[in-house]
C-alpha cells in the first residue's frame, strides 16, 4: 500500500507508540521479576508472612 508523501510521519508515529508501549511492558516485567526475586530471597532467609491477608497492605 502507498502511504503518500507523509509516510515517514505516519510510520514514525506508529513506531514511537509501539516503542512507548514496549518500554512500558518491559519496565513492568523487569519490576515484577525484581519483586519476585526479593520475595524469594526473603523466603530463603526465613522471613515469612504469618498473616497472609496483612501482607499486601
Amino acid at each position: 500500500m502507498d502511504l503518500g508523501p507523509h509516510a515517514g510521519f505516519i510510520l514514525a508515529s506508529y513506531g514511537l507508540c509501539l516503542l512507548t508501549v514496549l518500554v512500558l511492558i518491559a519496565w513492568i516485567r523487569i519490576d515484577k521479576a525484581g519483586q519476585e526475586k526479593a520475595l524469594r530471597e526473603l523466603a530463603e532467609q526465613g522471613v515469612s508472612r504469618r498473616r497472609p491477608e496483612d501482607g499486601g497492605r
Binding site: 513492568i28 516485567r29 515484577k32 519483586q35 519476585e36 520475595l39 526473603l42 532467609q45 496483612d54
Partner: peptide
C-alpha cells in the same frame, strides 16, 4: 492489561517492604 500487571507488581512491592521491615 498494563494496569493490572502494574497493580500486581505494586502489591508484591508492598509485601517485600512489609517483610523487610518485619525482618
Amino acid at each position: 492489561v498494563l494496569h493490572l500487571m502494574a497493580m500486581r507488581n505494586e502489591i508484591l512491592r508492598r509485601r517485600v517492604r512489609t517483610l523487610r521491615l518485619r525482618a
